[in-house]
Computed example of a mutant assay.
Amino acid sequence: MERFKYWLFIVLLLLIILISAGFSLWNTQAVPLSFGIVSLDPKPVSFWVVASFATGGVCGLLLGAGFIRDYKLKKRIRKLEKELANIRLGKVSRADDKESAKES
């Protein structure tokens, strides 16, 4: 079964490469891209499509890997460690207690 999955993966990968190459060869008309303020030079339609898929894939990998979530968690951990240090030193006021209660 493992061998079948391997060959199926290879066949699908080759099929995707073949379809992508055909798409790139048949869609060569240059098209400018404008985002309102920013205008980009004319490039083939296939370039814009492939670039958008690649950008989406990279963004999806970054989000899926949890880089943004990890950054937020590390930031929160640093904040809580500072609060804990202040509590140990006796520097906590009532306003800090109320802010902590709201965030929880």
Rank of each mutant, 00 (worst) to 15 (best):
Pro42Ala: 01
Ala30Gln: 07
Ala51Val: 09
Lys72Glu: 11
Ile68Gly: 03
Trp7Tyr: 14
Arg69Pro: 11
Phe53Asn: 04
Asp96Ile: 13
Asp97Asn: 10
Trp26Gly: 07
Arg76Lys: 07
Val58Gln: 13
Lys75Arg: 14
Leu12Arg: 04
Ser39Ala: 06
Lys72Arg: 14
Phe23Thr: 05
Ser93Arg: 11
Asp41Trp: 07
Leu18Met: 14
Asp41Gly: 11
Phe35Ile: 00
Glu83His: 08
Ala54His: 05
Ile87Lys: 12
Phe23His: 06
Lys72Tyr: 14
Arg76Asn: 04
Lys74Val: 00
Lys102Trp: 10
Gly56Lys: 05
Asp41Asn: 08
Val38Trp: 14
Ile16Gln: 12
Gln29Met: 08
Gly66Pro: 02
Lys43Asp: 03
Ile16Pro: 11
Val31Asp: 08
Tyr71Asn: 06
Phe35Ala: 04
Asn27Ile: 11
Leu12Lys: 07
Ile77Lys: 11
Ile16Asp: 12
Gly22Arg: 06
Arg69Tyr: 15
Leu73Asp: 05
Tyr71Arg: 02
Gly64Trp: 09
Ala101Leu: 01
Arg78Tyr: 02
Ile37Thr: 05
Val11Gln: 05
Leu73Tyr: 02
Phe67Thr: 04
Ser34Tyr: 05
Val49Met: 09
Val50Phe: 10
Lys91Met: 03
Phe35Val: 06
Phe35Thr: 03
Leu89Ser: 11
Ala54Glu: 03
Lys79Trp: 09
Ser46Thr: 05
Val11His: 06
Lys98Gln: 12
Leu61Tyr: 01
Leu61Ile: 04
Pro44Leu: 00
Val58Ser: 13
Leu62Asn: 07
Glu99Cys: 08
Lys74Ile: 04
Phe35Asp: 02
Ile37Trp: 15
Ser93Ala: 05
Val38Glu: 07
Arg88Pro: 07
Ser52Ala: 10
Ser52Val: 11
Lys98Thr: 10
Lys98Cys: 06
Phe53Cys: 10
Glu81Ser: 08
Trp7Gln: 14
Leu18Ser: 13
Phe9Thr: 13
Leu18Cys: 12
Lys82Trp: 07
Leu25Ser: 15
Trp7Arg: 08
Gly36Leu: 05
Ile68Cys: 01
Phe23Asn: 11
Ala54Gln: 01
Ser46Met: 12
Leu61Trp: 03
Trp48Asn: 01
Asn27Ser: 05
Leu15Cys: 11
Asp41Lys: 10
Pro32Met: 09
Ile87Trp: 09
Leu73Ile: 07
Glu99Trp: 02
Glu81Ile: 09
Gly60Ile: 00
Lys91Asn: 07
Pro44Trp: 00
Lys79Tyr: 13
Leu80Ile: 07
Leu89Asn: 05
Gly64Asp: 04
Asp70Ala: 15
Trp26Thr: 10
Asn27Glu: 12
Val50Ser: 09
Leu80Asn: 02
Phe47Met: 14
Ser100Arg: 14
Ser93Tyr: 01
Leu89Ala: 06
